[in-house]
């Protein structure tokens, strides 16, 4: 059975990462920016698994599992921050959150 080469895997990974960057840079809704970050983490995971497959080593897959665990912790804390933000300011639009003058 012919397996897929590394080039399409890395191309998909690069495209998904770039889509995530576009989402972070252009969207104003904090929740969608957050989802774009998840998209970037998944692109990195795909690259890990692709290189792991190329070298017939399982270390990349172990790293992918670690990335998922860190993403789970990050999602829990980040969504708690969004809830806190919404409770205090009644908005999730990032442009309205300028109290620190950034």
């Amino acid at each position: 059975m012919e397996t897929v080469g590394l080039a399409p895997v890395l191309a998909l990974s690069g495209v998904l990462f770039t889509l995530g960057v576009v989402g972070v840079l252009t969207r104003k809704n904090a929740l969608i920016v957050f989802m774009s970050v998840e998209l970037m983490l998944n692109a990195v995971n795909l690259a890990f698994v692709g290189f792991s497959r190329q070298n017939a080593a399982l270390d990349g897959q172990v790293f992918a599992v670690f990335v998922m665990a860190v993403a789970a912790a990050e999602a829990a804390v980040g969504l708690a921050l969004v809830i806190l933000l919404f409770r205090n300011r009644v908005t999730v639009q990032l442009d309205d959150l300028d109290r620190m003058g950034g």
Binding site: L12, N42, V49, Q61, V65, L79
Partner: peptide, 29 residues
């Protein structure tokens, strides 16, 4: 795609943790 790359365990964890737990948390919030 992970299954096509012979990463069966990672594929299962992707569905359970990402598509399951994390996205349920997102939609819940």
């Amino acid at each position: 795609d992970y299954v096509m790359l012979d990463a069966h365990f990672v594929a299962v964890v992707q569905v359970l943790v990402y598509a399951g737990a994390i996205m349920v948390l997102f939609i819940f919030v």
